[in-house]
Design a protein around this nucleic acid. Structure first.
Length: 291
DNA sequence: TAAGCGTGGAG
DNA sequence: TCTCCAAGCTT
């Protein structure tokens, strides 16, 4: 006898237990969804929420952001991390203003063409903002699928194939399929977590291949994060933190990383930040980008 | 394809 | 204390 589709279990579970998050409220809008997705790329929900609300109050439309200086966006990004995302979000806003009459596009191909938007974010906007029928695959989704469908403890490297695997789990109905995408992500975030999954609370444990196999500790092929202490990233972070604090004023080049012991690394950080467009030299001064 | 890219909370 | 990890994207 065939078992019920997972969506028959997960969609009702999601309706009952989904957390009340700002971007899930009615009328949040495509721009709000887009900004939230940029901020949520590798940054935890709790840190995003307050900054997201401030961001949208300041720049309620893509055109509002596009008309601001990129450095304002970088400064407002505050401690969200990966400040290139602020720059990319600003560029995407400019592209939306110039190519889409200030309206966040609905088509996945058009979304993918925007700066800083990849397979996940494009489909997240199309599905969560516009309610269209696409598979949305993030790291939570891939972990849930690895366990429930493949019986592995960890997902492998991201692959296009993941989209097809998720698409096969979606019900035909558009609204239901959007909920299923959200439900799988939610399950991965609150139940089927990376470190200590709460299998006792899982609504699909009876259908889970990993549980059925005895929850084996299978090989973890994920790439380990490079050491942060003493890294170039840490040096870049220190520069950006100082410039955010001084903004909108620039700082003397000599004042940046003044305590940094490794002068070569200091130069490397400044050069790479300039190459990324995150800082702008102006004689002896260095500031956030003005255009 | 794999490396590079921030920040801070949780276990 | 310290390692792990968090709604990825670009090159």
């Amino acid at each position: 006898m065939p078992s019920a589709p997972l969506s028959d279990i997960l969609v009702p579970w999601y309706r009952q237990f989904a957390r009340d998050l700002p971007w899930r409220r009615d009328g949040f809008g495509a721009w709000g969804t887009l900004v939230s997705e940029f901020m949520l790329q590798q940054t935890p929900v709790a840190r995003v929420i307050p900054l997201l609300e401030a961001w949208l109050a300041r720049w309620p439309t893509p055109t509002d952001l596009a008309n601001a200086a990129p450095g304002e966006a970088v400064a407002a990004w505050a401690n969200l991390g990966y400040p290139r995302r602020a720059l990319w979000l600003h560029r995407a806003a400019v592209e939306i203003r110039d190519r889409h009459n200030g309206v966040v596009p609905r088509e996945v191909d058009q979304l993918l063409a925007l700066t800083g938007i990849g397979d996940y974010t494009a489909r997240a906007v199309a599905v969560f903002a516009y309610g269209d029928h696409h598979p949305v695959v993030d790291t939570n989704t891939r972990r849930v699928m690895a366990r429930a469908l493949s019986g592995r403890a960890h997902p492998g490297a991201a692959h296009k194939r993941d989209l097809e695997q998720m698409a096969a789990l979606l019900p035909d109905d558009r609204a239901e399929s959007a909920l299923m995408n959200a439900a799988v992500m939610e399950l991965g975030q609150v139940i089927c977590t990376a470190r200590s999954p709460k299998c006792g609370d899982c609504p699909i444990r009876d259908a889970c291949a990993w549980v059925a196999a005895g929850s084996p500790a299978t090989e973890d092929t994920r790439r380990k994060q490079a050491k942060y202490e003493g890294s170039d990233r840490q040096a870049r972070g220190a520069v950006m933190k100082a410039l955010r604090a001084a903004a909108p004023d620039p700082l003397p080049r000599a004042a940046l990383l003044v305590d940094w012991h490794d002068l070569e690394q200091r130069e490397r950080a400044l050069i790479s930040l300039e190459n990324d467009g995150l800082i702008e030299p102006d004689g002896e001064l260095v500031g956030l980008p003005t255009r």
